[in-house]
């Protein structure tokens, strides 16, 4: 990476704050791509693009938000170029309405009893959700819970929620039916919710 800031730059590109943002960008990219080398490339491309278009940064948002938006676009482009490499048959193989995908996730307990929440597993009241989002430890748990989802679920969940693709596009890119896409997203959300409740909200009261 070039260590020089362009003339007239308002951003210290070799300073510690960019370095710390870069680390967070890497973590984000690795989570989306599950490939360290590609993640590194995407972050590199995003930083170079940002440096070359610094005039586009009007200071309306935080630098970090701006850099993350550029990174997000790089990752989306990469996924669009490479979607066909992601095994379609693998994703499409999932039974459309069966519970097979969830069994692995919830093998330790039964979530439902004849279609209704079991009392001990029913969604509880989460306290202080707004404060939670500014607690560093929460994000460690959030990160772990997303990564803990079965890979297919995590991948599609992240395309939808972190990369903000519409389900139409996700289905098209991955060659799966819309219904299958909705089922996978539903399972991912069930799993993530359960994990957050068990490991954060229900755990040690914070």
């Amino acid at each position: 990476m070039s260590e020089h800031s362009p003339p007239g730059s308002r951003i210290d590109w070799s300073g510690p704050s960019i370095e710390s943002i870069r680390r967070d960008m890497l973590r984000f990219a690795q989570m989306q791509l599950r490939d360290a080398a590609t993640a590194e490339d995407m972050v590199q491309e995003a930083l170079v693009a940002a440096m070359n278009s610094e005039h586009g940064f009007a200071g309306r948002s935080a630098i970090k938000t701006w850099l993350f938006a550029i990174l997000r676009n790089k990752i989306v482009d990469h996924i669009r170029r490479n979607a066909r490499e992601i095994s379609r048959s693998d994703l499409a193989a999932q039974d459309e309405d069966g519970d097979d995908g969830m069994d692995a996730l919830f093998n330790r307990k039964m979530m439902w009893s004849s279609g209704y929440w079991n009392h001990e597993d029913g969604p509880a009241t989460w306290s202080n959700p707004d404060e939670v989002l500014s607690q560093k430890q929460f994000w460690t748990i959030f990160d772990a819970c997303v990564n803990h989802l079965p890979e297919k679920l995590a991948r599609i969940y992240m395309m939808r929620e972190m990369l903000e693709l519409e389900t139409d596009e996700i289905c098209r890119e991955l060659g799966i039916s819309k219904n299958n896409c909705w089922v996978i997203l539903h399972r991912a959300r069930l799993g993530l919710r359960e994990c957050l409740e068990d490991n954060w909200f229900k755990g040690a009261a914070r």
Binding site: F28, F142, M162
Partner: peptide, 14 residues
């Protein structure tokens, strides 16, 4: 969770 994902995507996690 949707709000959390939005913040995560924007890098606003602390």
């Amino acid at each position: 969770m949707r709000e959390a994902a939005r913040r995560f995507r924007e890098g606003v996690t602390e």
